[in-house]
Design a protein around this nucleic acid. Structure first.
Length: 559
RNA sequence: AACUCCAUGGUGUAACGGUAGCACAUCACAUUUUGGUUGUGAUUGUCAAGGUUCGAAUCCUUGUGGGGUUGCCA
């Protein structure tokens, strides 16, 4: 088994290297074990990239296993979306699709093994009594009055539990470990509960369901998983994970290793909060482009490659860090700068009449489709007497260092001529509604004027009669503070009121009519935009994926 | 307060007893028909105190700070 040379490895890869070189394992088997009770988010992407990435690097395999032991919360809708998201991210579980529910029979059999060995018992106490008996952080627990039932009696009652002879919640099966253990997870943890809930796969075959702790390690063992990677909150479950492996006739002995979960600033990541955003209509759904869900990022236009690169960059440690959204966005720009085709689009148009350009004349201009990639070829678009430019690209009374159009000033029209603003036309309210400009015939694409004069500003534009109408949605961070979670107020109080701004009157270069749904392109000088699923042939809808880096925006905000 | 894990620039992440490096962010300058890209440079860091050692971010001790755990959720 060859290991790719790498200058530095995270602690998990170091463990795997050791296990391989010591001969403990011959190959590496990992697994990604989501519970199908919600949509995947970028935090899951970290785990997916780690587990599937490891399998690729080490020539091993990674299983997709749905941890479906709590039917009350789970649904096939989630199973499907999870599969779709993993594939979109670029990973493949091949034939290795499993469900914890595949092991219900084996787990039941193993529960009987524990009972037989005097290591599990049926407890008739109420939920409340069990909770009280557990003690707390500083107080040891006390033994249940049912703790010393005989193996025979326990087996009989447990079978009756399975056969549906008791009410939901009336009994549980518990492991017999140590009620005084300093680790609360070891104080006779519950193994099975009675719950008459319809399971998305096993239907109504079962009325008892195993708990996470009694399921996870054994499932790993049954699949011959070598390294079972999970997040830090399962650290104190590890002794229990190992207790089951030691007390059951498992076919293999996986190792649980914990790493820190992904945190991102300016967003929230917990399933509960994401659900709340959806249910209370603060966003338009799980795939709202402002959501940190995989489906949201996809709809936003983030390339999967950028998400994979991001996960690689942030690394794997046990330190609970908060990553900067700017790092993710920078990775998105990096990929998109290389790959995306360029177009001109005017989001907030103002009309210009080029007074010295002949009426009715149309000129075709050819320009690189992507200057970063000559193989992308060229595109053609039209210039004419009436064009639109961005309202932001004109100021009647500009501040210093403003390179764009203003009265008497000259700028370059991107890919076309120099124009000079000769006249400003306003309506009754004093609002600028049109500009009259003249152009320099000496300055078409690729040419500077023969008198050698230069111009500082370049402005994008579209020909009025050749443009198409569109709606453009400008997305920004969902929260206006770095840690919406912290502090005394609800995270909802920090929702950014401008997280989406809809511009209904955008004018696009006509080539943009052909861009496929879901594809991300660059609007020159503005940013990257992606065709939204709401788009129709009559009205194109684009989402802003991320803006270009904008040093002017920063400069002008400074006092 | 019990158990447990963690601590390196603003944010992340390397350095495995021997030069504290990289990315993002920030700020300059250069290039540029995208105020983009690209290039060059600058700024900023080992939680604290002791100890071991020729030498400590790294090993030891203590302290400080932070996270997790008291579901019949995962």
């Amino acid at each position: 088994m060859s290991v790719p040379p790498s200058p530095s490895k995270d602690f998990i890869r170091e463990i795997i290297d050791e296990d391989l070189s010591s001969g403990k394992h011959e190959s590496t088997v990992t697994r990604f074990p989501p519970e199908p009770n919600g949509y995947l988010h970028i935090g899951h992407a970290k785990s997916i990239c780690l587990n599937f990435g490891l399998a690729e690097e080490y020539g091993g395999r990674c299983h997709l296993r749905f941890d479906d032991t709590n039917p009350a919360k789970e649904d096939v809708e989630y199973v499907d979306s999870i599969k779709e998201d993993i594939q979109w991210l670029g990973f493949d579980w091949g034939d290795h699709l499993y469900y914890a529910s595949d092991y219900f029979d084996k787990l039941y059999e193993w529960a009987l093994v524990l009972i037989e060995n005097g290591k599990a018992y049926v407890d008739d106490q109420t939920f409340e009594e069990i909770r009280m008996g557990r003690g707390d952080l500083n107080t040891p627990g006390t033994d249940s009055p049912f703790r010393d039932r005989s193996p025979e009696e326990n087996a009989e009652i447990f079978k009756a539990m399975k056969n549906g002879e008791f009410d939901d919640g009336s009994k549980v099966l518990r492991a017999k470990v140590d009620m005084a253990h300093p680790n609360l997870n070891m104080r006779d943890p519950v193994l099975y509960r009675i719950a008459r809930a319809h399971h998305h796969r096993t239907g109504d075959a079962w009325c008892i369901y195993p708990m996470y702790d009694f399921t996870h390690g054994q499932s790993d063992a049954l699949e011959y998983v070598t390294h079972s990677l999970c997040t830090l909150e399962f650290e104190n479950h590890r002794p229990l994970y190992e207790w089951f492996l030691e007390n059951l006739p498992v076919p293999s002995y996986p190792r649980q290793i914990e790493f820190s979960r992904l945190n991102l600033n300016y967003t929230v990541m917990s399933k509960r909060k994401l659900l709340q955003l959806v249910e209370e209509n603060h966003v338009e759904g799980w795939d709202d482009p402002r959501m940190p869900t995989i489906s949201g990022l996809r709809r936003r236009g983030y390339p999967p490659e950028a998400i994979r690169n991001f996960c690689k960059t942030i690394g794997v440690t046990k330190f609970e860090s908060t990553n900067d959204m700017a790092l993710l966005e920078s990775g998105v720009r990096e990929v998109l700068n290389q790959n995306s085709l360029r177009f001109m689009a005017v989001l907030n148009p103002i009309k210009i009449v080029v007074t010295n350009y002949p009426e009715g004349q149309v000129e075709e201009i050819e320009s690189p489709a992507n200057p970063e990639n000559p193989e992308a070829g060229t595109r053609k678009f039209c210039f004419s007497r009436e064009i639109y430019i961005e309202r932001d690209d004109f100021m009647e009374d500009p501040p210093k260092k403003y390179f764009r159009l203003s009265p008497g000033n000259e700028v370059r029209l991107r890919n076309a001529y120099f124009i000079k603003c000769e006249e400003v036309i306003k309506d009754d309210q004093g609002e600028v509604i049109e500009l009259r400009c003249t152009y320099d015939t000496d300055t078409p694409r690729g040419q500077n004027p023969s008198d050698g004069r230069k111009v500082k500003g370049v402005v994008h534009w579209v020909s009025a009669s050749h443009s198409i109408d569109a709606t453009v949605r400008l997305y920004d961070r969902l929260f206006s503070v770095e840690s919406p979670d912290s502090g005394e107020n609800s995270f909802l109080d920090h929702i950014n009121p401008d997280s989406v701004v809809e511009l209904p009157n955008a004018k696009l270069e006509h080539n943009l009519a052909d861009v496929a749904n879901g594809e991300t392109v660059q609007f020159e000088r503005l940013g990257y935009f992606c065709v939204d699923k709401d788009s129709t042939p009559e009205n194109r809808v684009f989402n802003r994926t991320v803006g270009l880096r904008d040093s002017w925006a920063k400069a002008k905000d400074q006092p």
